[in-house]
Nucleic acid binder design. Structure first.
Length: 349
DNA sequence: TATGCGTGGTC
DNA sequence: TGACCAAGCAT
């Protein structure tokens, strides 16, 4: 290949020294003091398949409320799940709790990639990122940004995911022994700000002299991706059952879609076991919520009813504080609909 | 290796 | 507006 790895990595680090994004979990380029491993770990988990803009407010809330891993490990699971609500991929929150408790029990984060990799929720990418960014270890950090940069740099024609081993080897060759953490973050910043999915800014790219895709005039053709399957549509029902200014919520099964989160009773739309419909009542259709998950689109019809008194059994949440329940977005929107509809209904009654 | 798993922004 | 995509992991 024609890429001079040492020249390319030096050019990238020089670019990073001038253009690094300031992020709440990040130490400045070349900082004498590395970033706090707890904050690096927390940010990396939150950033899995999630944009920086979406993560920042969650990161600020989590670190204010739980400033270190011991505090997070001591927190109640329900509190953490509620704080995670809206960020998505809720298995991350369950793994976050398990990981925090393991790390707190061990007295701190391991520094070796292999030991990090063994912790819940930490895979190949995240282990490498923490080892490099928090502990200065040389590690091959290859996320989607890095894969895109490297696929273009070398004009890799093999489609993903088959290209991953090749991309990983090329990333390894580019990764310097020193400043591995800065190098990883530089690659990701480049991928997010310059070597973008659409309309990359090749004129400002420090790797332009080396880039095979740019030489061919078709950077957007890389990485090559397989076609996607169409999303099926599903139909479900959610029950908004009120009693004495409270609403009935259920804790969903720990595994599966929205696992471990609070939601409305109902079902019919998932493969997981659904709770039985609540106590008999006169249900009134109040509309539907459209929601798109990763692998299917859902129409959730909402039916509402009111009981004169609140049954002893069940988890009843005060309607006035529904915003604090920690509902995932689907059910938060269903609650918004129910509140608007029941308010209108009360006024017209 | 393929599939399941959220949400919001972008064009 | 619908399709694509984002600092992936677990199974």
């Amino acid at each position: 290949m024609s890429v001079d790895a040492a020249r390319a990595s030096a050019a990238l680090l020089a670019w990073y020294d001038r253009h690094a994004r300031a992020l709440p979990w990040r130490a400045p380029p070349g900082a004498a003091t590395a970033a706090d491993p707890y904050r690096v770990w927390l940010s990396e988990i939150m950033l899995q398949q999630t944009t920086v803009a979406a993560v920042i407010p969650y990161f600020e809330r989590f670190t204010t409320r739980w400033p270190d891993v011991a505090a997070l490990a001591a927190a109640e699971e329900g509190e953490i799940m509620a704080a995670w609500a809206g960020l998505g991929y809720y298995a991350r929150a369950r793994n976050l709790i398990a990981c925090a408790r393991a790390v707190a029990a061990a007295g701190g984060f391991p520094q070796e990639e292999e030991a990090l990799r063994a912790l819940p929720g930490i895979g190949r990418y995240t282990a490498a990122a923490i080892a490099a960014i928090a502990f200065g270890r040389r590690a091959v950090v290859a996320d989607a940004n890095v894969e895109r940069v490297v696929a273009r740099l070398f004009a890799i024609e093999t489609p993903l995911p088959a290209a991953r081993p090749t991309l990983y080897r090329h990333t390894d060759l580019l990764t310097p022994a020193a400043r591995a953490g800065d190098f990883a973050q530089a690659m990701m910043d480049l991928g997010s700000r310059v070597c973008t999915v659409r309309a990359p800014l090749c004129l400002t790219c420090p790797l332009r002299p080396d880039c095979a895709a740019q030489k061919q005039g078709r950077p957007e053709d890389f990485p090559v991706k397989p076609p996607r399957r169409a999303k099926p549509r599903r139909l479900g029902i959610g029950y908004w059952l009120e009693a004495e200014d409270h609403v009935l919520l259920v804790r969903r099964p720990a595994k599966g879609l929205l696992g471990g989160m609070l939601g409305l009773p109902g079902g019919g739309w998932g493969a997981e076991a659904e709770p039985a419909p609540p106590a008999p009542a006169d249900w009134r259709a109040i509309g539907a919520v459209e929601h798109v998950f990763t692998h299917f689109a859902l129409t959730l019809r909402i039916e509402a009813a009111r009981l004169p008194t609140r049954p002893i059994a069940g988890a009843w949440w005060p309607i006035a504080r529904i915003g604090e329940a920690g509902l995932p977005t689907l059910f938060a929107r269903a609650a918004d609909l129910a509140l608007a509809q029941t308010r209108t209904h009360s006024e017209s009654a």
